[in-house]
Amino acid sequence: MDRSRIALVMPALNEAVTIADVVGAAARHASVVVVDDGSTDATAALARGAGAIVVSHRVNRGYDGALNTGFAEAASRGFEAVITLDADGQHDPSLVARFIAALEGGADVVLGVRDERPRIAEHIFALYTRLRFGISDPLCGLKGYRIALYRAQGHFDSYGSVGTELMLFAARRGARIEQVPFRVGRRTDAPRFGRLLSANLRILRAMILSWRRA
């Protein structure tokens, strides 16, 4: 697979502290698409200066909304695969090489498996997907997909799946899935996903809706 045909899609909300370094490191492996999700700081300008393609939302659309935009941008530009990763530095960009190797080896989907998960709802969702599909960490933001899967489904997310709808669509179709364990980095500020209770509720809602589609 030509590395120039792989897009690294990063949702970013007020990540001015880390975005330039993360984009610079990731761009050594493939083309970077940053979705600036309504940031009020210099995230977009710094990402663009580091060499990323930048698509900006005027207002915040949330994680799934940002990924919807990122996948649409990648598809419109003719990329053959998309790897999603966080802009906050918790995903070491050097891991991208392992994901690309798995895609080049024939995988349809490549999933990161974190060494730790901070929320109880993540463990519950992971138990469901492990028993149902053999997927160990459905909510990890580091994932790789062949763009053909996105085109087959017609969208990335339709119900606020916390980044899991396309993955589960692929699993139900019998796609070849590989998993890559890795150690999560530490962020220096508060997480963007939300407070503990609201985040757990969002995850449980996504799990229930995905189960109904099984």
Rank of each mutant, 00 (worst) to 15 (best):
L201F: 06
M167E: 08
R195Q: 05
I124W: 11
G62T: 06
A121F: 08
I147Q: 07
G112K: 04
L13Y: 15
E178V: 13
L209T: 12
G65V: 06
H29A: 04
R146H: 08
D86W: 12
R195V: 08
T188F: 08
R119V: 02
L85Q: 11
F125Q: 13
V23L: 07
A214H: 10
N60I: 00
V35I: 15
D189T: 14
L13G: 03
G38Y: 08
A52I: 01
R183A: 12
V162K: 15
I208R: 14
S31D: 14
I120L: 12
R212I: 05
A175Y: 07
T43R: 12
R61I: 03
L209V: 08
S198C: 00
T43F: 04
F156W: 08
V82D: 01
R176T: 07
E165F: 00
L142E: 02
T43A: 11
G51R: 10
V55S: 03
V35E: 09
T18D: 02
W211Q: 10
G49M: 07
R176E: 01
R146S: 08
L111R: 13
S4Y: 06
F193L: 03
E116G: 03
A121T: 14
R213T: 07
P11A: 08
L95G: 11
V32E: 11
Y145I: 03
S158D: 11
G154K: 04
R173F: 00
L201E: 12
R119E: 12
H57T: 01
H57P: 00
G62F: 03
F79W: 04
G105D: 09
G24F: 04
A72P: 04
A20Q: 13
L46A: 05
K143C: 01
F99M: 14
F169S: 01
D137K: 07
E165K: 01
R172A: 02
A25R: 15
A47W: 10
E165I: 01
G185H: 08
L139I: 13
D37P: 01
S136C: 02
V162G: 00
